[in-house]
Write a protein that binds this DNA or RNA. Structure first.
Lengths: 200, 200
DNA sequence: GTCTATACGGAGATAGAC
DNA sequence: GTCTATCTCCGTATAGAC
C-alpha cells in the first residue's frame, strides 16, 4: 500500500520531496535549532500537522536537509566528472563556489555551517553525519589531485576544501561576497601553479 | 553605590566576571541557542535566578561571551607584538592555533563558530558583533603583512585567517586534531616562503 | 492519507521574600 | 544584593476526527 507508483503515492512522494527541499533551504538560512517544523511546513506549502506523517521527528528532517546537500554535491561532481582534465574539474569547482558567492556571503556554505552547528551537540547523533558529507567532497577532490599525479593528494584536498570553508565563513561574517571573488581567483591561480598532468 | 571598589562591588564584579568566563566556555561547547541560562549559572557557580541581576537578557550574556573571546585575542596579539619580527609574530600566531588543536577538533574556533551561528539570525542584532571580532584579528594580521612590505596585505590576511577558519572547521567536522597539525605546518612553510623583510 | 486541536515540556524572564 | 518560586510563551509531538 501507498507505494511510490500509485496516484496517492505520487502525491505523497511529492510532498516528501518538497519537505526535504524546504528543509534544506530553510535550515541553511536559519540554522537547525532556530528552524521550527512550522517554518519548514510553510516553506513546503504543507500543513503543519501533516509533516509528522512523513518525518517522525525534527531530527529526521534535519538529516533529510543534510541528505539534500549531499545530493546537490553529487550532482555537481557528476557534471564535473565529464570534463577530461582533473585540473579543469577543480577549477570549475572553484568557479561554482564563486558563483554561489551571494548566498555564501549571507548564510555561509550550507554543509559547512550545518556541520558547525551539529558539532555542538552531544556526540552520538547527527554530528557524525555532517562530517560524512564533507568527507564526500574531500574524497572527490583528493581523487582529482591523485589523477594529476601530485604527492599528498589528501593534504591538498584539505587545503582546497579548507580554503573554501574559510573564505565562505569570512565572506559570511563580513557580509562581503567580494571575499569569495578574490579568494576564489587566488585558488584558481594556485591550481594553475601546481605541477602534474593527466596520466592517460 | 555598588562601585567596583567596595567590598560588595568586588564580590559582584567577581560574579559578573565568572559569568562572562563561563558564558564564553559553555557557549563555545554547546552553541548559543542550545546553552541555557541555567547551564551558564551552573558553570559559574552562581544561582540561576541571580544571573538576571547582572545580565538583563540572554543575548547580553552571548554578547559578553563574544567580548571575552575578543579579550583573549587582544591578550594574544599583545604578547606577539613584543616580538621584533612581524613574520615571527605570524608564525607564533599559527603555533598558538595549533596548540589549541584538541579544543578546535572538538568544538571549532570559538569566534568562528559563534559567528556562524549568529549569522543565521535575522539581521540587526548580534550578527554584526561577531564580524567585528573577526575584523580585529584580520586587521592585526594585515598590519603584520604590511610591516613586511608585502603587496595586498589585506588579501594576505584574508588568506591566512581564512585558512585557519577552514582548517578548524574541517578538524572539527572530522574530529581530527591532526588536520590542524598538518595544515598548520603548511601555513608556517607558506609564511617562510613569502618575500619581504622588516622595514626599520 | 490529510489535517486540527491539544497535551506536554522546557526555557526565558519576572515578582517579590530575604 | 541575593535567591526562590512562578508565570508565560513557544515548539515538539500526539491523539484522533475526517
Amino acid at each position: 500500500m501507498t507505494d511510490s507508483k500509485g496516484s496517492r503515492g505520487r502525491a505523497a512522494a511529492g510532498k516528501r520531496q518538497r519537505l526535504m527541499a524546504a528543509a534544506a533551504r530553510v535550515v541553511h538560512r536559519q540554522g537547525a535549532d532556530r528552524t521550527t517544523i512550522a517554518d519548514i511546513a510553510r516553506a513546503a506549502d504543507v500543513p503543519v500537522g501533516n509533516v509528522y506523517y512523513y518525518f517522525k521527528t525534527k531530527d529526521e528532517l534535519v538529516a533529510a536537509a543534510l541528505g539534500e546537500h549531499a545530493r546537490q554535491l553529487e550532482l555537481l561532481t557528476g557534471r564535473l566528472d565529464r570534463l577530461p582534465d582533473p585540473r579543469e574539474r577543480l577549477k570549475d569547482l572553484v568557479e561554482a563556489w564563486v558563483g554561489q558567492r551571494d548566498l555564501a556571503a549571507r548564510y555561509g556554505c550550507p554543509t559547512g555551517t550545518l556541520a558547525v552547528e551539529l558539532d555542538k551537540r552531544p556526540e552520538g547523533g547527527l554530528d557524525v553525519e555532517a562530517g560524512k558529507v564533507i568527507r564526500l567532497l574531500l574524497d572527490w577532490v583528493e581523487r582529482q589531485f591523485r589523477e594529476l599525479g601530485l604527492p599528498d593528494p589528501d593534504e591538498l584536498a584539505l587545503t582546497l576544501v579548507g580554503a573554501y570553508q574559510g573564505m565562505s565563513l569570512l565572506a559570511n561574517a563580513l557580509r562581503d561576497p567580494g571575499v569569495m571573488l578574490r579568494q576564489g581567483a587566488r585558488l584558481t591561480g594556485w591550481l594553475d601553479s601546481l605541477p602534474g598532468g593527466t596520466r592517460l
